[in-house]
Nucleic acid binder design. Structure first.
Lengths: 222, 222
DNA sequence: CTGACCCCATGCGGATCATCGTCGTGGAGG
DNA sequence: CCTCCACGACGATGATCCGCATGGGGTCAG
């Protein structure tokens, strides 16, 4: 997830980028409004300081909103209800008055990103359905269909399958699967996961591209 | 667009409802947490005061988030970065510290609704009447008709049926149904839901495509 | 007051499922 | 080529989940 930080002050910008990078975001900084408008097309979220040198922050926002629905979090030194309301009216999703402590900023960004993700399910990935080869996985309905015939999976089997199917091509460690499905670390090498995987391979046929990564975990091949 | 205002203080609640009603929202107020959890099913947005008499506000939020992605704006008297971050982490979309001036509240609510509405094009299909096979469900009138003959359902049975009928083809977890119908998490493994389901299957005939998803919940087949 | 109805708590039985132990196997490294 | 060890296979067992039946408490209408 990439954040565009639009901020003219170098020191403030660095602090913001550091904070967000530490929280796991991919940051890019723009010092000027026109740069920001160009960069926005690659952004998943925009952090906008209203005090820009080359253009008014609210104009920036209104211009941006004519072209994009990207989530925008406004950061400003201008307190007061009037400015607050104007900022939100101009299209901001959130409006923070400086000074803002780092944990609050991160929490606000995360909350906004969470909402935006829910709001606009990425058009590339069908949210509810994962298809893989002759396999169709409906997450919402919790059903699996292989070559047109429904396959009856237990709750645990489905959980494990989802775990690896959500990251196709990536190896998923046994530990990760254990955490997600059983909600705890693997207490000693348990055979339960092996059993579930065996059951999946048996039910879904040997052509299921679920390979084991020896000494690590499993991977669903592309 | 309907807002559920969860607020125990009568005076504050009245002020909030007046403010939002003047801004053009359809408001409904709940004084208690369990009422709020039940009411959320009809809400487009929730305004939550963290100071509830019968349960902790953050618990309310976390419980709610297990069953719904409805936008939640938190209103609180507890200032401080810690509470702020905790509130957002628990699932709030916004976090306002009292006192909040009416214009700011309205602008915040509008901003959140604007962001979330992109998210929810689905409820746009006004579910006034749900038809399913030989079954007709009138939500407003709270009546069910099967093959032309009216079926007398109790309030609880109808609530449970609506829960699964609103998401046809999707599996609905047992806990979700519990939250929406009884307004609380499943206290230990209760057989009440089984009873209601059995009653529904008995009254609506065995052809009711309500299948149980073992280890998860129920699903109304398409 | 009385009766009917609804709803929920509890118990039981059947079916399913997860877990564990054991043994076999195949790959990696020396 | 040999050894080690992680993983796969399989059956037995204990736990879990669901459906159904029963009884008591509460509510409302007559």
């Amino acid at each position: 997830m990439r954040i565009i930080v639009v901020e003219d002050d170098d020191g403030v910008a660095e602090a913001l980028v550091d904070t967000l990078t530490d929280a796991g975001w991919d940051c890019r900084r723009c010092a000027r409004g026109d740069d920001g408008l160009r960069a926005v097309r690659d952004a998943d979220l925009v952090l906008l300081d209203l005090g820009l040198p080359d253009m008014d922050g609210l104009d920036f926002l209104r211009t941006l909103r004519r072209a994009s629905e990207v989530p925008v979090l406004v950061l400003t030194a201008r307190d007061g209800d009037g400015a607050h309301v104007l900022g939100l009216r101009a299209g901001a999703d959130d409006y923070l008055v400086k000074p803002v402590r780092a944990p609050v900023l991160v929490a606000r960004v995360q909350a906004l990103a969470r909402r935006a993700r829910v709001a606009a399910p990425t058009p590339g990935a069908a949210p509810g359905v994962l298809t893989w080869g002759g396999l169709r996985l409906d997450v919402a309905a919790r059903t699996a269909v292989r070559d047109g015939t429904p396959v009856d999976l237990t709750a645990t089997e489905l959980e494990v399958l989802l775990c690896v199917a959500e990251r196709p091509g990536e190896a998923v460690s046994r530990e990760t699967v254990h955490l997600r499905v059983w909600g705890g670390p693997d207490p000693g090498r348990s055979r339960s996961l092996d059993f579930i995987v065996a059951s999946l391979r048996h039910k879904l046929g040997p052509d299921l591209p679920l390979t084991t990564v020896r000494g690590f975990g499993y991977r669903l091949e592309t």
